[in-house]
Every structure is written in structure tokens, then in C-alpha cells.
Write a protein that binds this DNA or RNA. Sequence first.
DNA 1: TTCCCTGCAAAGGATTTGCATACAA
DNA 2: TTGTATGCAAATCCTTTGCAGGGAA
Lengths: 157, 157
Amino acid sequence: MKKPQTQPTKLTISYDEYLIKFRKLLVSLKLNNSTQREYVLKLFFECQEHLTADEVVLKLKQKFNITIGIATVYRILSFLEQMKIIKSLTLENETSKKYEINLKTHHDHLICNECGDVIEFYDSELERIQELIAQEKGFVLTNHHMILYGICEKCRR
Amino acid sequence: MKKPQTQPTKLTISYDEYLIKFRKLLVSLKLNNSTQREYVLKLFFECQEHLTADEVVLKLKQKFNITIGIATVYRILSFLEQMKIIKSLTLENETSKKYEINLKTHHDHLICNECGDVIEFYDSELERIQELIAQEKGFVLTNHHMILYGICEKCRR
DNA sequence: TTCCCTGCAAAGGATTTGCATACAA
DNA sequence: TTGTATGCAAATCCTTTGCAGGGAA
């Protein structure tokens, strides 16, 4: 059987365009803009990794040499998540939530237990089966969490 | 395409047999037995739900009228998880880990966002595809977490 | 001027740890 | 008797909240 697997594709948008959209969103919600919010957004845009709140503080210091209080970071993360600009995931054996920007098309994660490497993938067959299972049980799916854990090629050597 | 979906099956073993196995395990690890450990085991055996550490304390009081310190419960949960007697899962929007006994064959979860109802299912096609994806990326799978979230039939009315 | 946003520090919840005591073998 | 397990309280880690001051429109 042909397996229709693909890489998740990154939506092509520049940071400037992205920022304009973001500012419009804030206006439409009657919210103020702030340097802090824009820096966090910029960080996630540039560094497309999975970051914890602590790591956001750290990276902001490293990359832009600015300091934002951890409370503010948490508030911004919640806001961005509600707006679906970022999304969160909780990994096995890790205590704190990680966040990543939602620029890519929907995808799931494959993680190496040894080196922690994260591979993103999308598989339409998998998605289709999830829908079938849900249907069979009388559910309408809203979302799903799927993380595969294993050992990557490099670490097996 | 035929979808080979089944219910996860419960392994048929009595609590007495189970307890004997458990005691042997402790001996083989040169560990002492304790009333507390056996009660936690019994609880998970009898009440086949997903429980947090707090809920374990509560249920132990309700069902057996015994009190175990929360620290001990956490220590027992870690131990049982290491021994693969129970397994843990972290649900979306919940802060504390839940544990369930590992008596059933491998299965994943489908959860209603409204009523919190948990449906267990096993789908061999899904498992097969996960293996294929891992292979393609050069991974050897060790395990996976998959939780589907949706709204159940009852709650949609 | 009017809210919203931030930073600090304190509070909160979940989990872990140190230590003295109790218990199993 | 010896080492392990428990219970309590304190500590820790992550996250949230209250509040006073700073900033955006």
C-alpha cells in the first residue's frame, strides 16, 4: 500500500507580514501592543524550536539581550496559545510544557529517547484512521496528541 | 479497506495470582513487602480507572479505610511504573499525572472534552503505520502516546 | 486619561527529599 | 539485627495571581 507521508510544510510568510497581522489582531481585540509580546513572537518565529517558559526567558536574553519577567512570559504564552499562534506539548518524563510556533501545517512528533532529537511528520493515512476510530465510537474529533518515542539511527550505533 | 479495530482485552488473572507474582518480584529485587504497596496494587486492580496520586489516597480511604501518606503514594507509583505494573498519562489541561494498571493489552485513549469520558481502543492498522513512519525516519520505536480528543455522542445532543 | 501590561514577590499545586521512626525478613 | 519503607514536614519546581507602577492609545 502506498503510504501518503509527507513533511509538514512551512507556510511562507515573512516576519514583517506576520507582525502586521499580529498587530491587527491585538487592535481587533482592543488590546495594547507591547515590546515584550513582539519579542516573544519574534523569538518563536526565528527560532523554530520547542521551548519551555524558562527557555524563552533565556533565549530572549541571548538573542536580543532583553529581560522579561517569567510571569509575563507565562501570560504571553497563554495568550499566544489561545490565539492559536503557538501550541503546547508535554513530553514524557519532562515536567514543564513546551511551546512551538504554529507556522507549519499540522504535524505530529517522533522523538529520540537518547539525544532528544525531534522529527516532525504528517501522515494522511494516520489522520484518516483517527477519524474512522472516532466515528466508530460516536465522537467528533477536535484534536489529538500523538508522540512516538524511539531511538534514532545515530544513537543506535 | 477493512479496519482491524478491536477492544483492548483484559488479561484474565485473579488478584491472588497477581499478588503472588508481585511478592515474588519484590523478593527477586531484595525489597521488603509492605501493607501500603499491596493496598495500592489492590486498588488499581479492583478499580480500573485512571487515578492521580491524590485520588489514590482518597480511594484508599473510601474503599479500605486506610490512610497512606502522599509521599509514600508517589514513591509507590514511581516504583510500580518502573516495574511496568502501572502506566501514566498526562491529559490536556490537567496538571497532575494519571495512572492506570497495565492489565489490558496495549491501547490508546479517546477522551470527551465535555464529560471527560475515556474510551480505550486498539487499532492494529494505526500501530502498523506508526511503525512504518518510524522506520522511514530511521527510528526504532520504543513506545508512543496517542490521545484523541473530541465530543462524544451524548454530549453533542 | 484610561486601561492594559509588566515585574516583582507571594501564593499555589504537584511532586520530591531529608530524616527519624516503624516495620519486614 | 539490619536494611528497607513509611510519614511528616520542609523543600523544590513549575505556574499563577495580586498589586503597584509603567506604558500605549
